[in-house]
């Protein structure tokens, strides 16, 4: 029995060694850790959120061991291509610009609207006012192209602060991030506009890592097929969330 197990283990190791990710059974998952409910650091200091649960399930299906690392949003792509971790799973929308630098798996989260949020009660000029957005996001790109004045912040939390303290007239970000904040603000904040920007969210992977990409693609495909992905989306984003 023991030798049988040894044989199986050796066989597995062999096949993995040949599959290109030479004995790299451990994959390092890079995320931001500041974008609830997609990803955040929970009260015990661990990465948590929709993408943590999804990533762990994907790794299980692709038979990989996964280690979670956080990296600030600004330098999340440079650190991927430099090899400090192997995937970006951080609510990153698939865009043409990013696709030139890294590869994306198929989307694991369908396109979902972005919202403008401002202090309630006032009138906001969305086309010409001051709009806050996180640096290097599709929303920041949208605002700078729209003619409004863009103020950028390194973290999503600071964009909300900017609206609260009057530095910006409104913030533009993913609706799924903003809605819980608006709901819990006791009427201080309100949704003042909606915009459909960008496609779905995918996992970012180095262009040279085609093997890992196809394994993750397959795992995402299988989660779409058996409905577990939709269940997970509903669990984290509510029953009204867009599903596949």
């Amino acid at each position: 029995m023991k030798s049988l197990i040894k044989g199986v283990v050796a066989g597995l190791a062999f096949s993995v060694a040949f599959s290109g990710i030479a004995n790299a059974q451990t994959i390092r998952m890079g995320t931001e850790g500041a974008y609830p409910p997609y990803n955040f650091i929970n009260d015990s200091g661990e990465v948590d959120g929709f993408e943590r649960e999804l990533g762990d399930e994907l790794c299980k299906r692709a038979s990989l061991t996964c280690e979670w690392v956080t990296n600030e949003w600004d330098s999340i792509i440079p650190n991927l291509v430099s090899g400090n971790y192997d995937t970006i799973i951080a609510g990153m929308s698939i865009t043409e610009e990013r696709d030139k630098v890294i590869d994306f798996t198929q989307d694991y989260f369908p396109p979902s609207p972005s919202l403008f949020v401002a202090l309630s009660g006032g009138s906001v000029d969305l086309a010409g006012g001051v709009i806050a957005a996180q640096t290097a996001t599709i929303q920041a790109g949208f605002v700078s192209a729209s003619g409004a004045t863009l103020v950028e912040f390194a973290t999503p939390d600071e964009t909300i602060q900017a609206v609260r303290n009057g530095e910006a007239d409104a913030v533009l970000a993913d609706g799924d991030y903003l809605m819980p904040i608006v709901d819990e603000s006791n009427g201080e904040l309100a949704v003042v506009g909606q915009e459909s920007i960008g496609g779905g969210i995918g996992m970012g992977i180095r262009e040279s890592d085609a093997e890992l990409k196809s394994r993750m693609d397959k795992a995402i495909g299988s989660m779409k097929a058996d409905g577990t992905l939709n269940t997970m989306i509903k669990k984290w984003f509510g029953d009204d969330a867009n599903v596949f």
Partner: peptide, 16 residues
Amino acid sequence: GNDFVVCTAAKLPLNA
């Protein structure tokens, strides 16, 4: 391209 790729054994520290 943009990627810096070394063999798995040369990673510092190792992925695992």
